[in-house]
Write a protein that binds this DNA or RNA. Structure first.
Lengths: 136, 136
DNA sequence: CGGTATCCTGACCGATACTG
DNA sequence: CAGTATCGGTCAGGATACCG
C-alpha cells in the first residue's frame, strides 16, 4: 500500500487533551483530515447513511478515485468511518460513520450549512469591496 | 500586492444558497478559507478579542509571516475579520472578528474543542489498529 | 512593527493505466 | 466494483531578504 499516506508518526504518549495551537500536537492532524479538501464532504454525505465507494464518488463533484480512497483510509484510521467489505464478486464495500464520526460529521454539517446560508451575504460583501477599490 | 492571492474569480451571479457538493460553487472557497491550515486557528484566537499581527504570530505555533498575512487577507476579503491600521509609527495594526466572523469562529471552536477532547480516544484507537495489524 | 517580494521545495492532487 | 501504481503538474507554504 503506497498512496501517500503515512500513519507511522502517530503519537505514543498519553495525552489528556489536545492543543491545536501547538506545532506538534496530533490534534492538528485530525483537524487536517476532517477539514481536508474532501474529508468534510465525505463525512457529511455519510450522515445520510451507508454509501458505497462509487456512490460517494458520484455525489461529490470533482473528486478523483485516488483522493476518495485516500480520504476514506485516513478517516477510517482516525476511527471516524467504518469500512465493511462484503466477500462477494464483484466486490461490494460499504462505508458508514462510527459513533465518533457521527459527532465529527455533525460539527462539519453545522459549519457547512452556515456557509451555504451566508454565502449570498459574503458574495455581496466581496463585490462591494472590489467596487470600493475602483472608487478610490 | 502579489502574495499568491487572486480574488478576481469571485462569482457575480446571485445565489440564494450555496452547495458545497457542486464543483463550482464559491461556497467551497469559503469553506477552504475557513478550514485552511491556518484560517481556523486565526479565527478561534480572535474570539479572545483584538490581536495585533505579532500577537497572532506568536500564539500560533509554526506559522510564517507570509502565511499569516495571506490568511488574514483572505478572511478579511470574505468579511470574517476586520483590519484596523492605526496611523502611528511604528505601525500598529489590530485584527478583530466581524459579526459574521464571530459566527464562523464559533463553529470552528466547537469543532476544535471536540477534537481536542476526543484526541486521547482517537490516539488509542489508532494504536489499537496498528497493534492488530501486527497480530495478523 | 507589520508587512512584501522572491525563490524554492515538497505535498497535494488529477489523469491514466492496471488489478483482484 | 473498488480499488492500487505511477507519473507529472500545480500550488500551498517555508526561508530569506527587504521596505514604509
Amino acid at each position: 500500500m503506497k498512496t501517500g499516506n503515512d500513519f507511522s508518526n502517530t503519537f505514543s504518549v498519553a495525552v489528556l487533551r489536545g492543543d491545536v495551537l501547538s506545532v506538534d500536537c496530533p490534534a492538528r492532524e485530525i483537524l487536517k483530515h476532517m477539514t481536508s479538501r474532501w474529508g468534510g464532504l465525505v463525512l457529511v454525505i455519510l450522515q445520510g447513511g451507508v454509501h458505497r465507494f462509487s456512490e460517494l464518488r458520484h455525489k461529490i463533484g470533482g473528486i478523483s478515485e485516488k483522493m476518495l480512497s485516500q480520504t476514506l483510509q485516513r478517516l477510517e484510521f482516525d476511527g471516524l468511518i467504518k469500512r465493511k467489505s462484503l466477500p462477494v464478486v464483484p466486490p461490494h464495500v460499504e462505508y458508514s460513520l462510527t459513533p465518533l464520526g457521527e459527532e465529527a460529521a455533525e460539527h462539519l454539517k453545522n459549519m457547512i450549512d452556515w456557509i451555504e446560508t451566508k454565502l449570498p451575504q459574503i458574495l455581496l460583501w466581496r463585490r462591494s469591496q472590489l467596487d470600493t477599490q475602483a472608487d478610490d
